[in-house]
């Protein structure tokens, strides 16, 4: 398995996309450090990047990569290698290279300028989001043979989780605003990895003071050991379940 991963990894590095991505993140982070000296503000601005850019880049890069390595997968399939190994190698190679790009791009400036606890959460949630969206993109890639269709599905996932779902949540809040909704929304949030990551990060920053009673309720929850366990468990499931389904489909797929 490590041999296969190494080859995919080299292939990914050769396309230079990962380098661009790393460079882009480095540049943005450095630029934010130049523009602002307030640590919390920088983390906050980066949060926008993490919530929008990281999932977007993850889904697009993953689907494009998957289809451009179709040949490689075909080649490997004729070899005495388990399908599962090939697929998981693809996942691990893509996910780890994207995570590395992210960790370097965002982490290095913070190491240079000094980091706080919220930065560690930022890095961890970014990595989780990468894993989740790479996972979702693999799922959309095995759902269809058509590359553009697959990118379409992957973008839909992204669009759904970063926009449509929130619209739905807002509608629920609006419709049931007379009821105590804290627990309901907590459940709803768990069904969207982007929201979950956003809330975890917001609660880390001192701007959570602006979130009033709801914020306090969430802070209580996510601040507790149970909450940390819950949120990381949910994010973990979000990464695991799509890739598991994708693996099952891939196992039965004709190539």
């Amino acid at each position: 398995m490590t041999r296969v991963i190494r080859y995919i990894f080299n292939d990914i590095l050769r396309t230079r996309f990962i380098l661009f991505y790393t460079g882009f993140l480095l540049l943005s982070t450095f630029a934010l450090f130049q523009l602002d000296s307030d640590f919390g503000k920088i983390v906050l601005s980066l949060l926008n990047i993490v919530l929008m850019v990281v999932p977007l880049v993850s889904v697009i890069f993953t689907t494009i990569h998957f289809f451009s390595s179709y040949e490689f997968i075909e080649l490997m399939l004729a070899q005495p290698i388990n399908r599962r190994v090939i697929f998981l190698s693809e996942y691990l190679a893509v996910a780890s290279s994207l995570c590395m790009a992210y960790l370097i791009g965002v982490g290095v400036p913070f190491i240079m300028f000094g980091a706080g606890e919220s930065v560690i959460s930022l890095l961890v949630t970014g990595v989780f989001l990468t894993l989740v969206f790479v996972s979702l993109a693999f799922l959309s890639s095995v759902l269809t043979r058509d590359k553009s269709k697959a990118i379409g599905i992957a973008l839909l996932f992204w669009f759904y989780f970063s926009l449509i779902y929130d619209g739905f949540v807002l509608w629920i809040i609006y419709s049931f605003s007379d009821y105590p909704l804290e627990k309901v929304t907590l459940t709803l949030i768990a069904f969207n990895p982007v929201d979950l990551a956003r809330i975890i990060m917001l609660l880390q920053l001192d701007i959570s003071a602006l979130m009033g009673y709801t914020g306090a309720f969430y802070k209580n929850f996510f601040g507790s050991n149970m909450g940390i366990l819950f949120s990381s468990g949910i994010l973990f499931l979000w990464a695991i379940i799509p890739i598991y389904i994708a693996l099952r489909i891939f196992n039965k797929k004709d190539l």
């Binding site: 080859y7 292939d11 050769r14 451009s68 490689f72 080649l75």
Partner: peptide, 8 residues
């Protein structure tokens, strides 16, 4: 049709 990783 031999299809191989194009960058190799």
């Amino acid at each position: 049709i031999g299809r191989y990783p194009e960058n190799m």
